[in-house]
């Protein structure tokens, strides 16, 4: 009995815990230049591949760089890249979705067929092909991943706006003679943005994962900049002697992805910790679910952890 209750308590703590994990990584990333013990790119070729010591808590890599400082810098790189991609995808997706929903007709049809193409292709293939065409670099990686991620947001936004458009209060505003752009920016987009952000929470982890994967393949963040996927691949040759060079970056990455996925699931199911949990969130979630059902949910393509574990 007592055990059952403790399990329940632990389960209820999951969203808070995931929020804490993400907040911790964001904080470390934001403060990396200040709190990192050493310059993450400072080489000390006389002390390569050292174990843990008071000077280097997690040891050094093959170029004698401080592993802990690089991990902190990595949090900064990964989260910044993920935020850029998510921001870009959100802006493009919201705009295209809004235009498709407002214009309707041929414009809508053309834009939605475009998102069909984007959603039907596996994301890694699209990203790799884009990088192959443009050449690998950090900014091209951000661009490639934005290209991969915007269609899902365009579809979701379109579905949400179409459902909001038919509500009585919008008709009332129309009858009062408001301009289309006013209705769009004052009423429709603000109504759609909540559920879109809910969906974005679950996506953030997968975006961070893609950034790391591309960097792991040598097509994203380039050395010497510290990034987890890139640190992991440069640590692989020393797996036998210095497994820490592989274990820590991978662990950090996995924690962030699990954190975002748990949080995304919690937000979607409205189990959000206090500060975020208001009735508004519940309403947004209902809107998001309605819209997803209307948006022909399977076409959203990507398997999110939310769907997997629902």
């Amino acid at each position: 009995m007592a055990r059952a209750r403790s399990v329940l308590v632990a389960l209820r703590a999951v969203p808070k815990l995931s929020l804490a994990v993400i907040a911790a990584f964001v904080l470390v990333g934001a403060l990396a230049p200040v709190i990192a013990p050493v310059d993450p790119n400072a080489q000390d070729l006389l002390r390569p591949l050292e174990g843990s010591s008071s000077a280097h808590l997690l040891g050094t890599d093959d170029l004698g760089r401080d592993q802990l400082s690089r991990l902190m810098q990595g949090a900064r790189t990964s989260l910044t890249a993920a935020a850029l991609v998510l921001g870009g995808a959100l802006v493009i997706g919201l705009l295209i979705g809004a235009v498709a929903a407002m214009r309707g007709g041929l414009v809508d049809e053309a834009l939605m067929r475009l998102t069909d193409v984007g959603l039907s292709l596996p994301s890694l293939i699209t990203a790799l092909a884009t990088l192959g065409l443009l050449g690998p670099s950090y900014s091209n990686m951000i661009l490639a991943l934005t290209i991969v991620w915007w269609p899902a947001y365009a579809r979701l936004t379109r579905a949400l706006i179409i459902s909001i458009k038919t509500r009585p209060y919008i008709e009332a505003v129309q009858l009062m003679g408001a301009r289309q752009s006013w209705i769009m920016f004052r009423h429709l987009l603000p109504g759609a943005i909540g559920p879109v952000l809910v969906y974005a929470t679950a996506d953030a982890g997968f975006i961070a994962l893609s950034v790391a994967t591309l960097s792991f393949l040598g097509l994203g963040v380039q050395p010497p900049n510290a990034e987890w996927g890139q640190m992991l691949v440069s640590g692989l040759p020393f797996l036998e002697t210095n497994p820490g060079l592989v274990i820590y970056p991978g662990l950090a990455l996995t924690l962030v992805v699990v954190g975002f996925n748990l949080l995304g699931e919690a937000v979607a199911l409205d189990k959000v910790p206090r500060p975020l949990s208001r009735r508004a969130v519940r309403r947004r979630r209902a809107d998001a679910l309605d819209a997803l059902a209307a948006a022909d949910a399977p076409r959203l393509g990507r398997t999110t952890a939310g769907e997997v574990t629902a």
């Binding site: 982890g205 994962l209 790391a212 994967t213 792991f216 996927g229 992991l232 691949v233 692989l236 797996l239 497994p243 592989v246 274990i247 991978g250 662990l251 990455l253 996995t254 992805v257 699990v258 996925n261 748990l262 699931e265 398997t303 952890a305 997997v308 574990t309």
Partner: peptide, 21 residues
């Protein structure tokens, strides 16, 4: 459920490295 969450979250290259280890 936890298995599904973990296995879609863990990067495949990290999983591979841990298995090799």
């Amino acid at each position: 459920r936890p298995l599904a969450l973990l296995s879609v979250s863990i990067p495949s290259f990290y999983l591979a490295a841990l298995l090799v280890l």
